[in-house]
């Protein structure tokens, strides 16, 4: 777990140091993509804990989630329903909390806290 936190911290630090940004108009894309990535990672952690983790499924899920999120925002922009990105936000948000709940319960069980 510590390794994952460190990896996260390293990525954040790297990103902040390089100070890379996207154009302001792309901020929604970036945000939804981040949310998709977060969802993928949490579900990756969950599947790891459930011993169902495969590299291929994880990486593929990560990429497709992120791209699909961006695509939904794009479609929303195109068809004049800018709020369509909320669909992705809600979907990923719900999944994040779902997976987080599962991860939490698994880890609690492993540590004998329950």
């Amino acid at each position: 777990m510590l390794v994952l936190v460190l990896a996260l911290a390293l990525g954040v630090t790297l990103g902040l140091l390089t100070d890379i940004g996207v154009p302001p108009s792309m901020l929604t894309y970036a945000g939804v993509a981040v949310l998709a990535a977060l969802d993928s990672c949490i579900s990756g952690v969950r599947s790891s804990l459930e011993e169902t983790f495969t590299d291929r499924a994880f990486v593929f899920g990560f990429i497709t989630n992120t791209l699909m999120a961006g695509f939904i925002v794009f479609i929303g922009d195109r068809i004049g329903v800018k709020e369509l990105y909320l669909a992705a936000v809600v979907a990923f948000g719900v999944r994040v909390f779902d997976n987080l709940g599962v991860v939490r319960s698994i880890m609690f069980r492993r540590r004998g806290w329950e």
């Binding site: 777990m1 990896a7 990525g11 790297l14």
Partner: peptide, 25 residues
């Protein structure tokens, strides 16, 4: 199981993406 390299790398990427979004914002 959490020490899978892909997971670590992807979480690193997630962190990077977070930072990028944060920078933009």
């Amino acid at each position: 199981p959490l020490h899978r390299p892909t997971l670590v790398v992807v979480i690193g990427i997630l962190g990077f993406m977070l930072a990028v979004a944060f920078n933009t914002n």
